[in-house]
Amino acid sequence: MTSITAVSSCLPDTIPIARFQKELQLTDVQLRRYQRFYGLAEVCRDPAATETELLLRAATKLVELRGQEQRVKYVLQARTMPSPLPYPMTSLRPLQTELGLEHAAGFVVSHHACASGLLAVDLAGTLLAADPDPNALALVVAGEKACTTHTQSIPDVTVMGEGTVAFLVSADRSGPDRMLGYASRTHTRFGDEFIMSESAAKEFQDLYGPGLCEVIEAALAEAGCGLDELALVLPHNVNRLSWIGVCKELGLPIDRVFLDLIGETGHCFCADPFINLQKATELGRLRPGDRYLMTSVGLGATFAAMVFEH
């Protein structure tokens, strides 16, 4: 059984989104809507830091990794953007070198865009379940740079942040966060609309609620868990307003959704649900035995949900 055994995150300092108003091409009215209704007051960013540096900051905070390096067989980077670094640069090689993990097979998992983080958990669990070594671990990292016009926001939806996360995955069911069920669906109509046209954006908006509810219900069914059994939802931090709509459609109280970080992180690519896991655990919002749900939606367009037991 797949479990997350430890998680750490790195949140750069916050910057008010008003400071990016020109780059985001927001009118004053749109800016106020982002701040008041979307809950996007600030985002965490470090403009001078590279992707590799941001990922390394999260990974070096993962104290549970120290002394366990030889158990790590796989290093997976969950990635949203198809081409985020000038080739042949990659974050994985320097990251593995710095962490003493050159012996591990390291690769990027992508093309589910921001839902690639949940795919990476499932993929890591799949490899570990088949690994001859029952003590083998996988290190998963996620989080990206918002350094171009196209990557700093999703127009009329969210503003991107640069928070990163690192976590260890095991096939041992004794880990503190056990995966129970997973569902994902890729809607291929959007495969060549990673940067959406106006008509695609409208179509995506119409799909968003039903598409997310569909995978949530499927993941819950796989986990044998009812919606009312969920102690918490650890969402993708796109905006507060969209969650009001989804909660209404699901019949889920909005206070069950961990939205505490939206106003200070923004949407941190694949890293959101895991940043939320680290923070919710730190705040004592999850008790032993609690069941919770992670969600992610990636442009292109993949909807995903995963159920865990804490």
Binding site: M81, P82, S83, L85, Y87, P88, H111, H112, A113, H150, T186, T188, R189, F190, G191, D192, E193, F194, I195, G300, A301, T302
Partner: peptide, 20 residues
């Protein structure tokens, strides 16, 4: 889908398009 060098086109996802 496996690749060594990324696509120069950053608005498409091969896996999603192929699945279609």
């Amino acid at each position: 889908v496996a690749y060594a060098a990324p696509d120069f086109e950053h608005t498409e996802l091969v896996a999603s398009c192929v699945k279609r």
